[in-house]
């Protein structure tokens, strides 16, 4: 199968390169990338780790759509065209700069705020399955960046907090054990926060974990208005 890969390095700039990869059953795009690195060109840079869709390293654009390379089966395609994610600066080949993305995540205070807990003598808090369900789906974000790469609001405003960070803010605001809602709402209601979203819904469409960041953003908006 033909692998058409958009490559980039400082010396040669950006260019397309095609590799021929032998395919066996149950092979994924990531297996193909490793085949290339191990047999054809060991300079091919891409990120990969768990190969089971839980670490979030390997999101790239495959035939136009951001997907996790590790869980995309080759049997779906006749040939594959692989590019780095949009809205991220490229470092080399398919590897992009994620520091800014993680910095935005940090900005929304994505941790449980509860002044009553004690480090030395922790006490179990009660949370019913229903209370757990209220936020659980939003804990599943693997920070792969797929949502941010397709977000038109993120494309036009670099400082936009973006779907992943905002979904994370909602995850904690919806947690029955949390006491930091006001702080977080103050952060997300700034000009680069929830009001930047234009409901293009692309984030919810590409999310490999079927989280609905778009929904989280709208629910945060509702909360800020209260």
């Amino acid at each position: 199968m033909k692998f058409k890969i958009k490559r980039f390095n400082e010396k040669n700039g950006s260019y397309w390169q095609t590799f021929e990869v032998p395919v066996r059953t149950a092979m994924t795009v990531l297996d193909g990338l490793f085949y290339i690195r191990e047999n054809l060109d060991n300079s091919l840079a891409f990120r990969a780790s768990c190969r089971m869709g839980i670490c979030g390293s390997c999101a790239v654009k495959i035939n136009g759509k951001p997907r996790l390379a590790c869980e995309t089966q080759l049997s779906k395609f006749k040939e594959v065209k692989i590019e780095p994610l949009d809205n991220f600066a490229v470092i080399k080949d398919l590897v992009t700069e994620f520091e800014g993305f993680f910095a935005k995540h940090k900005k929304v205070k994505p941790y449980l705020i509860n002044p009553k807990i004690s480090y030395e003598n922790p006490v179990e808090q009660i949370q019913t399955p229903k209370q757990l369900k209220a936020y659980y789906d939003f804990t599943l974000c693997i920070k792969c960046g797929a949502c941010y790469s397709v977000c038109p609001a993120g494309a036009t405003l670099e400082s936009y907090l973006g779907p992943a960070a905002l979904a994370s803010a909602y995850r904690f605001n919806a947690d029955s054990r949390d006491h930091g809602k006001e702080e977080r709402l103050k952060i997300v209601s700034q000009p680069n926060g929830v009001w930047r979203c234009h409901s293009a819904m692309e984030c919810s469409e590409v999310c490999p974990k079927q989280i609905e960041p778009a929904k989280a953003i709208q629910l945060l908006r509702r909360a800020t208005l209260r």
Binding site: Y111, E124, I126, T128
Partner: peptide, 15 residues
């Protein structure tokens, strides 16, 4: 649990 880990719960809300 105190730091926010979403442990699965029993019907009465315990870990």
């Amino acid at each position: 649990e105190n730091w926010g880990c979403p442990w699965s719960r029993t019907a009465d809300g315990k870990i």
